[in-house]
Design a protein around this nucleic acid. Structure first.
Lengths: 117, 117
DNA sequence: CCCAATTACCTTGACAGACACAGTAATGTT
DNA sequence: AACATTACTGTGTCTGTCAAGGTAATTGGG
């Protein structure tokens, strides 16, 4: 892996990243893990512990549901599906991110004369 | 305050925000607190506990130094000054943010056909 | 002149998200 | 047979943020 993203820069975005992948169709843990690596060009690895912790959280909150795949042979797979509520939360999270991004830019790079409102 | 930024979206950026303000000149806690409110257009309030925690961390790490103001009368003020190392860390943090931002955009909004590398 | 608001600093304890580490179990490859 | 890979799970730890609490001086309004 080349340069990587620090933990704290991704923090709080994990759920949104997972919901975004599930918007494109049901998937399971290991596939999502691989997909995130691929989408980030090997620059961000969402650790498995973090991923499965997020699944519990999202399912408890009603943003996703899960079901076991019917692989009669081969490793069992637990599939996750985004719910209508999850779709709404995803959309809200994206709005929050777009909103926060601009303010962060100002706070991080802004200086004299950049006052708001 | 109108809409606000969630804690987790700002997490990990606190030090960078403080360093950015100190790049523009020495300052003290309460002034920095107010400045962040102002720069964000009242959309983000860095809590005092967080601010003073960050001062300890930054000073311990050598990114800032502190000295008491010489207000002979009036409330004492503890001023903070960014060090050369702090300047370097600030620059690196900004690079990290620019880098992470693009990847985050992809992970949050990207879909099929957005593969990297 | 008193009282409330503001300025200014600080500490402690708790919480939540991310992850290191450890484990289980099946399949595929050599 | 041995090893890598796929696939899922639990436990305990670390770190940044913040709620809640505290101290003390100054300023402005009634």
């Amino acid at each position: 892996m080349s340069a990587t993203i620090s933990t704290d820069l991704i923090r709080g975005h994990t759920d949104t990243v997972i919901l975004n992948i599930l918007r494109q169709g049901d998937s399971y843990g290991y596939e999502i893990y691989k997909r995130i690596l691929q989408l980030s060009g090997n620059r961000y690895e969402l650790k498995e512990a973090t991923l499965y912790t997020a699944f519990r959280r999202l399912e408890k909150d009603g943003d996703i549901t899960s079901y076991w795949g019917d692989e009669t042979q081969g490793g069992r797979r637990k599939y996750y599906r985004i719910t209508a509520q999850g779709q709404e939360h995803y959309a809200q999270n994206v709005r929050d991110w777009d909103f926060a991004k601009d303010i962060l830019e100002t706070l991080i790079k802004g200086g004299i004369g950049d006052d708001q409102d």
